[in-house]
Structure formats: structure tokens, C-alpha cells
Amino acid sequence: MSNTPIISARGLTKSFLSGDRRIEVLRGVDLEVAAGESVSIRGESGSGKSTLLNLLSGLDAPDTGTLAWAGAPVEADRRAAFLGIVFQSFYLIPEIDALANVLMASRIIQVPGAAERARAKELIARVGLQERATHLPAQLSGGERQRVAVARALMNSPKLILADEPTGNLDEHTGDAVIDLLLGLCRETGTALVLVTHNAAHAAKCARGLRLRDGRFV
């Protein structure tokens, strides 16, 4: 395995205008995540966790600082294959069933073939939704939806998964199950994980824990 970190951020800053005021959300964040490593980020609401995740995923650009994915510059075209994202609100496409939602991650890169379909089915089975594969998101519970979202994030065998409070909309028991599943799958597949969470118990399950306060790691 190469020593190049999967993700490397140096001196990331980000501010937003709120009326006439400029609010500095991130004030020079440094972060390196190694291949297969799981990192938790905790912090109070407004501490900049989601903003940091948006920068790490390349969905937003930092004001200053540098960011590299596996040593290479961040490019939107690489995102689909390089990383998977799990959101707090699941964001499944309501018009298509669970299996098609998982396959959607692959479909965005290329028209799926038999191998991709087989992988989607395998992932659906792996998250325990074999019987629910043809169900629409509206027919699934919150926990089941998040498991579909986890399978979708893993569909393209990414190097990194960014999970933004994935248990925020779930009850404690279901949340625990989802985190165990996510960590287990990442371990199995050697996928690095950056987990943003409020939950100390979930954060403790990761190999490394970070705390963000006022836009800096403390």
C-alpha cells in the first residue's frame, strides 16, 4: 500500500457572507487520512463540520489552503469514482427502487453492465436489504433508507467515504446498527472513512477522533 494519504488538506479556510458580516467558518484546517483509516470529527453545531466535509468532497472550494485526493488535485470528474458520500437525510431518489438507487452511483459514471448490477445486488444483500431491493424509498424505514445510502456510497469501490451525521435522523438502536455496518464494510473493503457525528459512542468506534471548535481542530 502506498504511503500517500487518501486525503490531504493543508490550511483550509472558508468564510461566508451573512448580510454585511463575513463569518469565518474554517480557520486553517489541516487533515490527513490514510488509506483504510477511519476518522471521526465531532464538534458543536456551527463548528464547521459540514463545511469541512463539503470542502473535502470537492463540492465546495476553500478560500485558501490546498486539498489533494490521493496526492492529486481535486477534480469534480474524479469524485464519483474516488469517494462516496452518506448524508444525514439519506437523499434517495424517490422514483426508483432501492437497488436502482444503489446502481445510480455507478450509472453516473457509465451505463451499468452485468458486473455493476451484480455488485449492486451484492451490496444490497450486504446491507441486509435483499428482500427490500425492489421497494421504493417511501416503502422503507429510516434505517433501511440509510443502509441503501451506505450501499450506494460503496457502489463504485471508492477510496474514501465521507459520512455527514449519518445517524442524525435515526433512533439510537438503528443508528448504532448503521454505524457498525458502515465501519464494518469500510474495514472489509479497505475504504477510508471520515465520519462527522455528534455521537461520542459512534466517534469512539473510529480509529482516530478529531474535534472541531471555532473552525480549527483542537
Binding site: A76, F87, S89, Y91, M104
Partner: peptide
């Protein structure tokens, strides 16, 4: 939000 998701998944 679905459109945002498609962008996040890599949709151009």
C-alpha cells in the same frame, strides 16, 4: 435536493 445529490454523486 435530488439535483444536488446527482451533482454530489458526480453528475455533470
Amino acid at each position: 435536493r435530488e439535483i444536488g445529490l446527482l451533482g454530489a454523486l458526480g453528475g455533470k
